[in-house]
Design a protein around this nucleic acid. Sequence first.
DNA 1: CCTTGACTTCGAGTGGGCTCTAACTGGAAG
DNA 2: CTTCCAGTTAGAGCCCACTCGAAGTCAAGG
Lengths: 120, 120
Amino acid sequence: MTVSEAAEQVGLTTYTLRWYEQEGLVEPVGRDSAGRRRYTQQDLDWLILLTRLRRTGMPVRDMRSYAELARQGDSTLGARRRIFEAHRDRVLSRIAELEEDLKVLNYKIEVYGKMEQELL
Amino acid sequence: MTVSEAAEQVGLTTYTLRWYEQEGLVEPVGRDSAGRRRYTQQDLDWLILLTRLRRTGMPVRDMRSYAELARQGDSTLGARRRIFEAHRDRVLSRIAELEEDLKVLNYKIEVYGKMEQELL
DNA sequence: CCTTGACTTCGAGTGGGCTCTAACTGGAAG
DNA sequence: CTTCCAGTTAGAGCCCACTCGAAGTCAAGG
């Protein structure tokens, strides 16, 4: 799979894919005879995991640490589990926060609705 | 209330408070005889609403549009309600997305846990 | 009086996360 | 062959949302 196909699959741009590699979030991707990247299914799976971490708000810095641990093999399983547990807690807090803010949003919408009625 | 007190109340820095004003997110705040900002409760309420919009992911650009509508008075009530409705939908999608990602996180944690067991 | 400290403005600087440009290369289609 | 296209690299640029530094002002405390 070429870089542009991979980009489409995971929902990132080719720029970002190359940049992730350069930043050490992704192992150097295999190349064909002409030096072009060829992505395997494993590469894609890893990238999809990264995009999930990313959009749940994990900083690239932390994703890099996680990637480094993953490269070191099974001895870092515990550390990686703990990273995920901590991150899960942050995501839970974030969801709770969003739900709080949602209440205010709904309240505001209601108030605006009522005010519009009264103006008629 | 001074700028630093207001900052503490709403959870922003004094820098940010002045910048929000400069960016038109906040009406020019009243001044005392020495030209120092004095925040009223209304100012605070508005800032607190802004922080909610901000942390639910509304870009500053959109917050400015909203602030401009608010300044124009009751004739823009409908427009403001629609902005909030659209934003609420985005927040709902965001929560749904986070919950999806949470599932993957939990699954990963489980898998790591099992792998750690097997290594013993 | 003088120092201290919180304020003022203006403009520059920072950090994060991409995003793009320039110059080049290799393989495939006509 | 030549043209075209999708890739390659290194490094610069961009956008957003702040964040800070410099230089100055004001008023209260000692």
